[in-house]
Write a protein that binds this DNA or RNA. Structure first.
Lengths: 118, 118
DNA sequence: TATTGTTATACTCTATAACTATA
DNA sequence: TATAGTTATAGAGTATAACAATA
């Protein structure tokens, strides 16, 4: 995680910021509160996080109703998110490459089991 | 890790404190600076951590030379550390029990590979 | 009455700098 | 000169409380 965080830092993003970008990318027009529930980030902490992304013009807030804002990536945001996803993919490949190919499937299945039963 | 941390919290220990207790248990008379290098804890953060353990009479500082202190568990410290080790063992068993027995060896070997090459 | 979003605030963890006493 | 330990402090990350606006 520390190494992945340093990859994000090279894009001037904290881990939570990079994750939120990927979530918006995969769920256009999702609201702040939905992201917060998904990632278990308190709404009090989502507010300044999204403000930072909006200030950097990576994300746009579009009113859904009077109190909710749908979030969407700007074109800059899309380009940064592409780099984020590449960083994640490279990171995963580097990790997996250390495990003998014959064991990868079993290993990933075991990891998924631990994750899902949490 | 969050779940293990809550097990430590039931013993009134932060994760770093529980880890330091186990390190002292396995290495009697180890010094603060050695523990710091082992666990990658800055000396500035070891000082208050050890002070807390000493104030609670879990650990004793015995001067080695004029500047180093060897650390040892008190009898209270030994009893708490026994509970810490039990908590870790139960935690590991709970995790491993979720993985089919036939895959455990492969899974642990893969984890060890990732860990050691870091 | 419940929910969305916001501000203010506090606590923990970690990192840096400056210092002392000793080797 | 380098090391052990300490103090003070600053920065993240995260948590709670209080609040306004809206459903």
């Amino acid at each position: 995680m520390a190494k992945l965080a340093s990859r994000f830092a090279a894009l001037d993003l904290r881990p939570a910021e990079a994750t939120v970008l990927m979530v918006i990318d995969a769920n256009p027009n999702i609201t702040q509160s939905e992201i917060g529930r998904m990632l278990d980030i308190a709404s009090a902490n989502m507010a300044p996080l999204v403000s930072r992304l909006a200030d950097r013009e990576l994300v746009e807030r579009q009113p859904v109703d009077g109190r909710s804002h749908g979030l969407a990536l700007t074109s800059t945001g899309r380009s940064v998110t592409t780099k984020v996803k590449k960083a994640v993919a490279i990171h995963e490949e580097e990790l997996l490459s250390k495990i003998p190919a014959s064991q990868r499937k079993t290993f990933l299945a075991a990891l998924r089991t631990l994750w899902s039963e949490e």
